[in-house]
Amino acid sequence: MGYYVEVETDVKIYVEDVNPSCTNVILFIHGWPASHKLFEYQFGVLPAMGYRCIGIDLRGFGQSDKPWEGYSYDRLADDIRCVVEALGLRSFSLAAHSVGGAIAIRYMARYQGYGVKKLVLLAAAAPSFTKRPKFPYGLEKEEVNQLIDATYNNRPRMLQDLTYSFFYQNVGEPLADWFFQMNLQAAGYSTAAVMESLRDEVLFGDLPWIKVPTLILQGIHDEISKPPLAEALHEGIANSRLIWLYNSGHGLMWEQRNEVNDEISKFIG
């Protein structure tokens, strides 16, 4: 079932809640510039295995409200906390992809992991999405600036190009169109604003605040969140486990959905 949670005056977040009677809860946070529908191939399997799967659309994306402001990691983490409180979630698992992983890490630091028993990071865009003087990984800032410019000048073309860099495997035209249409649901300005946060924000100081068991899943062919980012996360997060996926790019939740679902289930229990 779907419903809305107010996270700020005149800002409501869409929530998709599957198998709500189950007590083993996974809260999913999607990546840029998608929506909770990115996890369709988890939501179609994990509830049958005994999980309550909750997906949110970040502000500015999917079916959520699209305010002009509020796209920093802090504000987006605050939105997660509002949803957790509104739903009364306690002892849940947090699973997040790409920039969703960055927001989940900020949530863990900003709120001392409130309510979270286990953390799953899928191709997380952290601890820094861009290269820095002491972190020679990730994308060049100029590459990110080009994405922002393309968003403002020809967003459909940018999203079309993104579709074919998102996946390592040849996904075929029907799935590519599904992914493209999902990303079009976002506002152009929110798409650009979150990319600015990806470009500018860092999470190195947040990692020591993660005190729960953490599973890191990473496609070795990922050209968006580069594989060295996963290694840095593994090094920086105590009690973490890194699993490489050898037939995936950034879209690991589809490209190796069976392996991803199995690993999440084994990890969460």
Rank of each mutant, 00 (worst) to 15 (best):
residue 64 S to H: 00
residue 93 S to A: 11
residue 58 L to I: 00
residue 81 R to Q: 10
residue 101 G to R: 03
residue 66 K to G: 06
residue 92 F to Y: 05
residue 77 A to N: 12
residue 84 V to M: 09
residue 79 D to G: 07
residue 96 A to R: 05
residue 76 L to M: 13
residue 51 Y to T: 09
residue 69 E to H: 12
residue 88 G to P: 05
residue 81 R to P: 13
residue 93 S to H: 05
residue 94 L to I: 14
residue 89 L to D: 14
residue 50 G to V: 00
residue 75 R to T: 10
residue 96 A to D: 08
residue 79 D to A: 10
residue 80 I to Y: 07
residue 84 V to I: 12
residue 86 A to E: 05
residue 70 G to A: 04
residue 89 L to N: 02
residue 74 D to M: 15
residue 89 L to R: 01
residue 103 I to L: 12
residue 57 D to A: 12
residue 64 S to N: 05
residue 53 C to D: 01
residue 73 Y to P: 02
residue 89 L to T: 04
residue 102 A to S: 15
residue 76 L to V: 00
residue 108 M to E: 12
residue 102 A to V: 11
residue 71 Y to F: 03
residue 90 R to V: 08
residue 110 R to N: 00
residue 102 A to Y: 09
residue 85 E to P: 10
residue 73 Y to R: 01
residue 98 S to Q: 12
residue 107 Y to N: 09
residue 83 V to P: 01
residue 53 C to N: 04
residue 63 Q to M: 10
residue 81 R to M: 11
residue 88 G to R: 06
residue 67 P to D: 13
residue 87 L to W: 08
residue 62 G to A: 14
residue 67 P to I: 03
residue 88 G to T: 04
residue 85 E to Q: 13
residue 65 D to L: 13
residue 70 G to N: 04
residue 50 G to L: 06
residue 87 L to H: 14
residue 106 R to L: 08
residue 62 G to Y: 04
residue 50 G to M: 05
residue 79 D to R: 00
residue 75 R to H: 13
residue 50 G to Y: 05
residue 48 A to N: 12
residue 57 D to V: 02
residue 50 G to N: 02
residue 68 W to Q: 15
residue 105 I to Q: 03
residue 74 D to C: 02
residue 103 I to K: 06
residue 97 H to G: 05
residue 104 A to L: 05
residue 105 I to V: 14
residue 89 L to G: 09
residue 85 E to Y: 14
residue 99 V to R: 09
residue 111 Y to P: 08
residue 103 I to W: 07
residue 102 A to H: 15
residue 52 R to V: 01
residue 70 G to F: 04
residue 91 S to F: 15
residue 77 A to C: 08
residue 56 I to S: 02
residue 77 A to L: 04
residue 64 S to R: 00
residue 72 S to H: 00
